[in-house]
Amino acid sequence: MSSKSNRLYQMVFVYLCLVAFILVVMPAAATAEYPEKPISYIISFNPGGESDVTARLQESHLEKFLGVPVNVSHKPGGGGAVAWSEFQRTAKPDGYTIIGVNIPHIIGQPMLRKDAGYETNGFELIMWFHFTPNALIVSKESPHKTLEDFLAYAKKNPKAATVGGSGSFSANHLETLRMERAAGVQVTYVPHTGTGPVIPALLGGHLTGAMGYSMLGVQYKDQLRVLAVAADERVESLPDAPTFKELGYDIVGGAFRGVAAPKGTPPEIVAKLANAYSETNKIIAEKQRQLGFVMTYATGKDAYALVDRMKKNYEGILQEIADQKKKQ
């Protein structure tokens, strides 16, 4: 080594030593009450998706209510299953690691996959904070003006109507299957790798329609037409779109997003988190509602009841798929 580069290394060395010193000293200070250190909030999907964007919105408000940093990190893969299975295997029930959860994903995957690696009931649910109802959507240029038009076409041409959606055995897929049963038609469901790719396929005329989330109807108001929404009541930001119920089909469903802690987390910590999330939800409600989300406030027992209710809703369809797989 030349003397010049030696000096370079010495300088770097001094600098880095300082850094190391700070690192060791920093976490020393400790207080008594939860939370006393940063909370890691895991999102089991890619950056840019609905789960991520919501978490980013919540982040700063959560920090305010909890008084500690909340760090959002991503662990995508397997439609969420990679993060959920690792979470149930390894996360410590101390309230410092929490994870975003979704219905129907956490209901369907453990039922249909041999190696999902986690259980629906293996979470300590903190809260379900919003709901995005499914909606049957077509392009503005489509000849189908109403749900009846669409179903009449599907009835006349079995399997010819292609309905796109995000993923297999997802909320979109299961809803399409329920619509087929309810209306007595046969369509071809075409799964996509996310909600994103469904839009160009719809606009480019590669699909007859799509079973997507209600937000799409708001975001792409100029280009898409919502034929029916799978909610109990009309969605605030889509006042002109009828519900399936109004049109005589009892179909209500969609994706619920929420947050959970590891099984065995002390109830007072869960309550504290639930409180912070509820308050946050109230603040971001206005922004989210405009985007087409339906806000929910299911905490405590309600959170588990919601899972049970949705489980019942989907059980029939899921069982049918599972049986089909066995028969093959």
Binding site: P76, G79, V82, E86, R113, D115, Y118
Partner: peptide, 8 residues
């Protein structure tokens, strides 16, 4: 047989 391989 490995759950983590679901992520591919």
């Amino acid at each position: 047989g490995m759950p983590v391989m679901q992520g591919g």
